[in-house]
């Protein structure tokens, strides 16, 4: 089954410093029928105004991934870690037993846009950790480039959740193919451009697709496209 979630159906939060488009229940938005997809619990598409951001606050028992799409993001946490991220960087924070952090847009002029994904961890009470990942932008050209995984290969970061997250930038007319194991899920988010899944389902910019009970998936670009793809454990 392929369920297309249009951009316009996301829940939007807007204030003077933040625009956040929520794909799943989060904060004041609560919909019992839209809590998670496999281990994926949060998928927020955030834009922060210059000089603003999320001040110091805690997390626990989540694997938190931030993918910078535009601008910069400055990270500081109670582990003593710090990071300065831009496009080409991904942040992986394993909250485990708990940590405090802040995420700010250090620019005085440019907005910061990033995707914030939270996954349920495979086990509780992990030791908190933080890492910045730099991926090879050229290597995702017309390929699914794994960025992080529960079973990482060389150059891929380890996440404590049953997921592999890929990025790809496709030329117009290019097609990707993914063979999936029975019982697992897939998730597609179109960052830019437009895709057609299995010759039938159109996924436009900022739309997503939640895919269950499919053993094969083709993803063909209708135009130059930049996509996020995930192979996820089954379940809820």
């Amino acid at each position: 089954m392929i369920q297309i979630i249009p951009e316009t159906s996301r829940f939007s939060v807007k204030n003077e410093w933040l625009e956040s488009n929520l794909s799943f229940s989060f904060g004041e938005y609560y919909d019992e029928s839209n809590i998670q997809f496999g281990p994926l619990r949060v998928f927020n598409d955030d834009t922060i105004q210059p000089g603003r951001g999320f001040g110091i606050h805690p997390h626990r028992e989540m694997e938190i991934v931030s993918i910078v799409l535009k601008g910069q993001l400055k990270h500081e946490d109670s582990l003593g870690s710090s990071g300065h991220l831009k496009f080409g960087n991904v942040q992986l924070m394993s909250a485990g037993t708990g940590l405090l952090h802040s995420e700010m847009n250090p620019s005085t002029e440019e907005e910061s846009s990033f995707l914030q994904l939270w996954f349920f961890p495979d086990q509780k009470q992990l030791t908190p950790s933080y890492q910045d990942i730099t991926f090879n932008i050229d290597a995702m050209h017309n390929e699914l480039l794994p960025i992080l995984s529960s079973n990482p290969t060389e150059g891929t970061a380890k996440i404590h959740s049953d997921v592999t997250l890929y990025l790809s930038r496709l030329d117009n007319g290019q097609e990707l193919y993914f063979k999936q194991d029975r019982g697992r899920k897939m998730y597609v988010f179109v960052i830019e451009g437009e895709l057609v899944l299995n010759q039938e389902f159109v996924v436009s910019q900022k739309d997503s697709a939640r895919i269950s009970n499919e053993q094969e998936l083709t993803m063909k670009s209708n135009q130059e496209s930049f996509i996020l793809f995930m192979d996820l454990a089954g379940g809820e």
Partner: peptide
Amino acid sequence: RHAIGSRL
């Protein structure tokens, strides 16, 4: 608060 999104 809720640990996911900090709903009060």
